[in-house]
Design a binder for these strands. Structure first.
Length: 424
RNA sequence: GGAGUAGUACUCAAGAGGCUGAAGAGGUGCCCCUGCUAAGGGCAUAGGUCGGGGAACCGGCGCGAGGGUUCAAAUCCCUCCUACUCCGCCA
């Protein structure tokens, strides 16, 4: 959520920066008018309430002294109505302002590239050598089905399309990757391991920015508690500290969490229909940080390096891109995507995303810290990154490590987890 | 799922319509005392948030959350949430 005070102070520059995302944000001008009305009401309302409090006290006194309170009671009768109607008006203004702010995305960081969509993202580095094949490399779904690693038909029988059953060494590979990634981040990169709920409530979804605007992307439970299936570990992990003031000495907080993520993939009909690139359910290892505002961009770069370390260890070629303003996620000020090389597509596919939300989620979730014992609380910055999407890592391994005979060489770092050096 | 009990500040806890923005204790901070430590004494300690004001400061909200009754609610009523106890069920 944007800071209302800041919006008021820098209205036009903010509208201009937001519009770099695409879309019209001139509606924010209305906030200024609404806010002025809101303040006027508050001033008036508080005067009335203060007077009413005085009067009530007086009534108490009079009663104890046995005096007649009827005249006083009559004198405040009209204020009562004024107060309740002003209260109502205030509530309605507050909720209008709130709704506007909740539906307004984060302001893109000053230095990110300006562009209208993903075609204007900028490749900032390429790492690793592309594999060479003396045969036609197969797509992962063919390899996986041939080796008996995936079963799409039965997954559809069990659930629906866009699900998969992993079998045998396929299931083992997925599990091995989860363990490998979690071990790397917790033991080498200093993150604290979390195992989180896979169901989150409406407040959590709102704090991180999935709601109210992107309700159609989430799986909502049919239940009057307004619960959702976890769409990404970012949601439960950031909400660990919702409505908290984190002691300064606990910052920065680094969490790593494996979760299963659930997405409706609304609007993706027809895209990536084959294979395990885009499923309703997938596994992901996530990195989450809470930092002071001063440290968040350093922390972002460090997180990117932690993410990259997974691909480096697996010896998979990848590129890092910086998202342009038009491709930026709703809650984020700046985002790097990591894209892994997919031989069958002769191109790169997103396998991870590392973002700084600055104070946007912290404000929605009321997550603060204090610089000193008697200092005013300030919002923390929140960051999240993939470390990595596990299913897509499976895709990358199958395709990049495929052999002419149809088998897969297991990347060295995974062998202790796989108990084999070959999938055949 | 049934039946019950409870949620008050950093912690424990009193409070049962107005004199309570909240007794008391612990903790914490500052000071005194003591050669150091322990013990003792004094003072302070509702955070947070919204609004007014140049500021000092003033005011609104706030006793799990949200509604309601009342001139007035921590205190009465309703709904919800959470924790605990008992019963049932269950990995």
């Amino acid at each position: 959520m944007l800071d209302l005070r800041k919006v008021k102070k820098e209205l036009e520059p903010i509208i201009e920066r937001l519009s770099l995302r695409g879309g019209d944000f001139r509606y924010l001008r209305e906030i200024i008018t609404l806010d002025q009305e809101r303040r006027d009401i508050i001033v008036h309302l508080e005067q009335l309430k203060a007077a009413k409090n005085e009067t009530s006290k007086k009534i108490g006194l009079y009663k104890r002294e046995g005096k007649d309170v009827r005249p006083i009671l009559e004198s405040i009768e009209s204020d009562k109505e004024k107060i309740s109607s002003l209260d109502q008006r205030l509530k309605s203004i507050d909720s209008t302002i709130d709704e506007m702010l909740l539906n307004t995305p984060n302001i893109p960081h000053q230095e990110i590239p300006v562009g209208k969509d993903e075609s204007e993202n900028i490749v900032i580095k390429k790492v690793g050598d592309l594999p060479t094949f003396d045969f036609e490399p197969k797509p992962h779904y063919e390899i996986g089905v041939n080796l008996g690693l995936f079963d799409f038909e039965r997954a559809t029988k069990i659930a629906s399309s866009r699900f998969v059953v992993y079998k045998g060494l396929g299931a083992r590979l997925e599990r091995a990757l989860i363990s490998f990634m979690m071990d790397l981040h917790t033991e080498k990169h200093g993150y604290k391991e979390l195992l989180l709920p896979y169901i989150v409530n409406q407040d959590s979804m709102t704090a991180t920015g999935q709601l109210p605007k992107f309700a159609e992307d989430a799986f909502k439970l049919i239940d009057d508690r307004h619960l959702y299936l976890n769409p990404t570990a970012e949601v439960p992990a950031i909400n660990m500290h919702r409505n908290e003031i984190i002691p300064l000495e606990e910052l920065p907080i680094h969490y790593s969490a494996f979760t299963t993520a659930f997405r409706q993939e609304a609007g993706s009909a027809g895209r990536d229909t084959r294979g395990i690139i885009r499923l309703h359910q997938f596994n992901k290892v996530e990195l989450i940080k809470f930092t002071t505002p001063d440290d968040s961009y350093k922390a972002l770069d460090a997180m990117l390096a932690d993410s990259e370390a997974v691909l480096k260890a697996l010896k998979l070629p990848y590129q890092v891109i910086e998202l342009c303003s038009g491709d930026l996620g709703f809650s984020m000020a700046k985002t790097y995507d990591i894209e892994v090389y997919i031989p069958s597509q002769q191109g790169y596919r997103e396998i991870g995303s590392i973002s700084n939300a600055e104070d946007y989620q912290a404000r929605r979730g009321n997550i603060k810290f204090k610089r000193a014992r008697d200092a005013k609380p300030e919002y923390v910055h929140t960051l999240n990154g993939s470390g990595l999407a596990v299913g897509r890592t499976v895709v990358a391994i199958l395709e990049n490590y495929q052999q002419k005979d149809g088998t897969i060489v297991v990347p060295e770092v995974l062998r202790p987890y796989m108990n084999t050096d070959k999938i055949k």
